[in-house]
């Protein structure tokens, strides 16, 4: 299995559902060679999400101050974007960082980890997703094959450098086989 794609977020909290919605639409469309998972288990069970694959890509909402709909591609763990949702998935504060430390202590192989974050406008309970986030979701789903190619071991992303893609344009350039423009600069 080349890559496991894990959607995170709250389905009932507006833009926070972006990661879950991308996975749901990819599943609905079918034909994706990745393993799709709609949300990780909490606590130590997160280890199961990280086992048996080369690459795990988390899809989640991001709030960094960038324009809504901006896509963030970030290697994990990262000091650039703190993955708040991932860090809080356990009611006991056991998150991705703790899981990685435990896996390292147990000498388990850790896959390449990345976050594709969708910059959100608001994450309010019971609200619909904002238009910029809807557009970003649509772009990711439509261009996902090119995106996978970009993330593949022989692809163009070095899995070290965080990238930020302005709304609507970044994955278009991926589809043409070009390296995306890093406009964020992090």
């Amino acid at each position: 299995m080349p890559m496991r794609v894990v959607g995170c977020g709250n389905a009932w909290a507006g833009d926070d559902s972006a990661g879950l919605e991308i996975v749901r639409r990819l599943e609905e469309r079918g034909g994706c060679p990745c393993e799709l998972l709609e949300r990780p288990q909490a606590g130590v069970e997160l280890m199961e999400v990280l086992r048996g694959v080369e690459t795990v890509l988390f899809l989640d909402a991001v709030s960094s101050g960038a324009p809504a709909g901006t896509l963030h591609l970030v290697p994990l763990p990262s000091a650039v974007i703190v993955p708040r949702t991932l860090g809080a998935i356990s009611s006991h504060g056991w998150g991705l960082a703790e899981t990685l430390r435990l896996m390292a202590a147990l000498r388990h192989r850790i896959p390449r980890l990345g976050l594709l974050g969708v910059e959100i406008e608001a994450a309010l309970p019971g609200t619909p997703r904002s238009a910029p986030v809807e557009s970003a979701i649509q772009v990711v789903v439509e261009r996902f094959a090119a995106f996978e190619e970009f993330l593949a071991p022989e692809g163009q992303w070095d899995w070290v450098t965080p990238r930020r893609f302005a709304p609507g344009e970044a994955l278009c350039s991926l589809a043409k086989g070009e390296a995306p423009t890093d406009k964020g600069g992090f």
Partner: peptide
């Protein structure tokens, strides 16, 4: 448990 895991995997 993380610290323990290194010595008692």
């Amino acid at each position: 448990a993380i610290a323990m895991a290194a010595d008692h995997p």
